[in-house]
Nucleic acid binder design. Structure first.
Lengths: 154, 154
DNA sequence: CTACAATCCTTGCGATGTCAACTATCTTAG
DNA sequence: CTAAGATAGTTGACATCGCAAGGATTGTAG
């Protein structure tokens, strides 16, 4: 109360994230057997040139640790949606590439997931408010090293 | 090909949460040995009447599952910041009550944590923007939608 | 060419958190 | 009173994710 900074916004940010992601995650899991992170990674691959990315770049794009990406991709590979592709010019890197099944999966999941996001999140705001919100959230720090800030896409 | 422009807001919401909570969590852990959730629960107890709460109420307040609360409180009890208190009128409930050490811990942690939140989150916005943001985030669903739907007719 | 540093990726381990199942207690209907 | 059901809490099995450490490869300096 006495403190100048208003914590209410931060608390609501935390609670809203917990509630919305929990519900979105449950629906995505139930309808497509995907985690939010799984879907996130599939979409990044979908829009990537050649529909493939280096593991390290995926990690920076979706803000997960490299080890988290390794394990997440293990699952996507086991499901047949992603495959490893050797890099000819640098043997350290192992591309993650979408398979045809992965492309299909991504499009299928998007069908319902985008609608769910709209229902639980987007529909709460007018068009102008969406822009305002997006702009404000864009001011928050994305990563310590600002390396992941090449995320100009959406 | 992005069907609606407001996906950008959602993506930024996700990324901002990941980045800010990761940094806040690292600082809180390093300076006080607390998780964000630990701190969250300590604060709820701090402001609760009698500085104690039923486990189930804590779970609803901080949006964690009952089992998650059990395990989180195990840790806080082991550290001596919280203790179990039997409820006289209902033997099912086990209050979680702040100890003097817990009160001290909460106040100590708040000192730096509130400043960290201000630095990483609050300082990005003007006073008016904070109110706007807080109001908008308050429109997002907080309750468990799927539970209510699953209950069906009730 | 050799040595050393940086980069990409994986693995061991631990922490956190969920769900399903269970016990124990309270409440309510008959 | 008793049976059925709701509620509070815990536990076991499991999934996710981060950090630290290590291996492999590449880049760089002498």
């Amino acid at each position: 109360m006495l403190s100048r900074p208003d914590l209410a916004a931060w608390i609501r940010f935390l609670r809203a994230h917990a509630a919305v992601t929990r519900e979105l995650s449950a629906r995505l899991e139930g309808q497509h057997g995907l985690t939010l992170s799984d879907y996130d990674v599939l979409v990044q691959l979908y829009y990537a040139p050649g529909q493939r990315l280096r593991r390290i770049d995926i990690a920076r794009l979706v803000l997960l640790s490299p080890s988290g990406i390794t394990r997440l991709l293990d699952g996507l590979e086991r499901a047949g949606w992603v495959e490893k592709v050797r890099c000819e010019s640098d043997n350290r890197v192992v591309y993650a590439a979408l398979t045809p099944a992965g492309i299909q999966k991504c499009e299928d999941a998007r069908e319902t997931h985008v609608a769910d996001i709209e229902e639980l999140f987007g529909s709460r705001f007018s068009d102008e408010e969406r822009n305002t919100l997006s702009e404000m959230l864009g001011r928050l720090p994305l990563a310590e090293t600002s390396e992941a800030c090449k995320a100009g896409d959406a």
